Simulated assay, not measured.
Amino acid sequence: MDPDAARELKARILERLPTAVEARSTAGERDAPWPWVAVGLGAGRTGARVAVRLQRDADRALLPDLGRAAAEEVDVEVIGPVHALTSPTDLRRRTRPLRPGLSVAHEAVSAGTLGGFVRTPSGLAMLSNNHVLAASNSAFPGDAVRQPGPADGGGSADRVATLTAFQPMVAGVNLVDAAVALLDADVPATPGDLPGGPLLGAVPGSLDVDPDEAVEKVGRTTGHTRGRITAVEVDGVAVQYDEAVYRFDDQIEIEGRGGPFSAGGDSGSVIWRSRDRAPVALLFAGSETGGSAGTGVTFANPLATVLAVLGVEWCPDL
């Protein structure tokens, strides 16, 4: 299917979902009003396909009748619940200089991952998720960030940065789960210290990331892993955080190669394209089931969107 035709079919599915979902939602359920239906663009044998992801098999009943021809262009998969990856290598211990992949977190959070470094008007800052550096909206600019995170033994003496800015997550549609923390003046960092060297490619827009693209990341829990993008422009990703379910649109879905691409504690990792080492996405959530190998899928924000929303510039090396 032509990509534009796939986008039209995706739009048809999304347009027909709300009525069905609202009719099936039960008062008090944490799922409502869009329970567990995400729709994006995937790769088919002869072009693009529409990728539909469900968290419960029963939610198949929510999908509209598109007709036989259109249904053949839709890949429906049950991936189970999607959670923010914050639960408790060498990446977990106290490390200086700071580098991508290390355990970091707000003092009220268990542990996540230092994804990379960005330039702000005030200086060099680390990039990770809102739910890692800003405790899912509950922190304040000026709060301390520790390395390692508290779950890995980080205490008050392990302060390395100050929360500078984060994009609040809201009850409506979200695009990113992202935050930055300005490094303390006496804390050294080596932004380019990643497997294979610095990420020197230009930061592309989301349309430059295609299904079947080979990607990599380094994260606090699973270390250096490889995978492939299985869907882009995914709308309606419902992510379970400790305090609420938040919906995300225009996300990237990734499967691991030879095992899971990520696990709890990898949130905040920056994902790069294998072919040119261009940073493309910020990892923030995933499931434990689904995917071609049944080991789960990972979701990530397009990095170009993250940088634009936060008003910062990617820093590949000093």
Rank of each mutant, 00 (worst) to 15 (best):
G101E: 08
S287E: 09
R277V: 00
L207P: 04
A165L: 13
S25K: 09
Q55N: 12
P3R: 08
A285K: 00
I271S: 02
G192H: 11
T230G: 06
A308S: 13
L66F: 15
V76F: 04
G205W: 03
P168Q: 04
A171Q: 10
E243L: 14
D59F: 12
R119V: 09
Q55K: 15
E288L: 06
Y241C: 08
N130S: 10
G155A: 10
L307W: 15
V173A: 06
A238Q: 04
A300P: 00
R92G: 13
T46D: 15
V52K: 01
L182I: 11
S128A: 13
L182E: 08
L318W: 15
Q167M: 13
R49Q: 15
D208P: 03
V37S: 02
D31R: 00
R146E: 08
G155E: 08
G311Q: 05
G153E: 04
D276Y: 09
P316H: 07
E22W: 13
M169Q: 11
G40Q: 07
R99V: 08
D242V: 09
D184N: 05
V209E: 02
P198D: 02
W36C: 12
A139N: 04
R99M: 14
Q147S: 14
P88N: 09
L66N: 08
L114D: 01
A263C: 11
D177P: 00
S267L: 06
P191H: 04
A61V: 14
G223H: 07
V297Y: 01
E255G: 07
V232W: 01
G201F: 04
L307T: 03
P97N: 13
A263S: 13
A214S: 13
P168V: 00
D266G: 02
D249F: 00
V74H: 03
A23I: 10
R99L: 15
H106C: 03
A244T: 12
L163I: 05
V176P: 06
L91D: 03
Y241M: 09
L114Q: 03
E73V: 13
V160F: 01
D75E: 13
Y246R: 07
H224A: 14
M169L: 15
S122C: 12
V37I: 12
L182W: 08
A38P: 14
V160L: 05
I229Q: 00
D143H: 09
A84Q: 02
W34Q: 08
E233N: 04
D4V: 15
G265A: 07
G256Q: 01
H224N: 15
P100C: 11
R159S: 05
E107V: 15
S103G: 06
D31E: 14
M126Y: 07
V245K: 01
F261D: 02
P81C: 06
G291F: 09
G44A: 04
V21H: 02
R228A: 08
D249M: 02
G268L: 03
G80D: 11
R45C: 14
C315R: 05
S287H: 03
V145K: 02
D31I: 12
A71P: 08
T295V: 09
M126A: 10
R68K: 14
T230L: 04
R49L: 15
E107I: 14
A108C: 11
G44W: 02
A32E: 12
A6D: 00
V306N: 00
L127R: 01
L283R: 00
L133N: 09
T298Q: 03
A71D: 10
E243F: 02
T230M: 06
E29L: 03
